[in-house]
């Protein structure tokens, strides 16, 4: 389904020097896989996922989705790809605080060029909120919700247009253990029941364990980690990892 070949990506910093983050990544992802991506903080995991998700087109190499090169897509095609085929879930949720949860979930419908009735979009969003277990919060703004609840809203939003793939960047990074486990259960169900391909960057060993496949990014390249049981967080000695874990602890479930 996804084919990455010879992917190079470097960032130019302000002083003109450039930092090579991905140096020849090769990766194949099959439909329905539950792939966890691990690696040290700053190793380029987010960069790789953004490229695969069509958010970043500034790279060298080839990324094909269903045989179509992302690079060659127009802005319109890439946007349609993100809208219809990809669902993004972020560590910091990225919800709109001035909208209700329901409106947040409906957001992708605003940019859906296939168009659909607003009423259908509402029904679909309510359905999804129900599916992720927070239907009762539909009319509230997300700021009244706990971290776990916010992430459920974000997942519902990602699912809105029935994507074939979800790209999740440390989805439990800001959550406490219990919420994280619940979110993991949700992912497992989505993968097993709805056959949604999952690409999850994580420091969470439980998620890495739950995945059907685990890859590690190291020195700008992908190293296959067939043994999914390797403890991802142990590898992540960096300061970022510590902060990620610390932030999660602040979020208390059912704060609302």
């Amino acid at each position: 389904m996804i084919r990455v070949r010879g992917l190079h990506k470097s960032y130019r910093s302000g002083d003109g020097s450039s930092q090579r983050v991905l140096r020849g990544v090769d990766l194949d992802i099959a439909r329905g896989e539950f792939l966890s991506v691990v690696g040290r903080s700053g190793s380029g995991k987010t960069t790789l996922l953004n490229i695969i998700g069509g958010l970043d087109s500034d790279y060298e190499g080839a990324v094909e989705v269903e045989g179509k090169r992302l690079h060659e897509m127009t802005d319109l095609e890439a946007s349609a790809y993100r809208n219809n085929h990809v669902g993004f879930v972020f560590q910091s949720f990225h919800l709109f605080d001035y909208m209700s949860c329901l409106e947040n979930v409906m957001l992708p419908s605003l940019f859906d060029r296939k168009g659909g009735a607003a009423a259908d979009a509402r029904a679909r969003a309510l359905d999804l909120l129900d599916q992720v277990g927070i239907a009762e919060k539909a009319s509230q703004p997300p700021m009244n919700l706990s971290g776990g609840q916010k992430q459920r809203v974000a997942i519902a939003r990602a699912l809105f247009n029935r994507p074939s793939m979800m790209i999740c960047d440390e989805p439990t990074g800001n959550l406490d253990r219990r919420s994280g486990d619940a979110i993991l259960e949700l992912f497992r169900a989505l993968n097993q029941e709805d056959r949604i391909t999952l690409l999850i960057v994580t420091h969470d060993p439980l998620i890495a364990d739950a995945a059907t496949r685990c890859v590690r990014i190291e020195d700008g390249q992908v190293r296959e980690d067939s043994g999914a049981s390797v403890r991802a967080s142990d590898e992540d000695g960096g300061a970022d990892g510590g902060v990620d874990a610390g932030e999660g602890a602040f979020e208390a479930e059912e704060r609302a």
Partner: peptide, 13 residues
Amino acid sequence: IGIMRAVGATRAN
């Protein structure tokens, strides 16, 4: 704006 782009907004949008 980034979120809107992520859920499918084009530059023109």
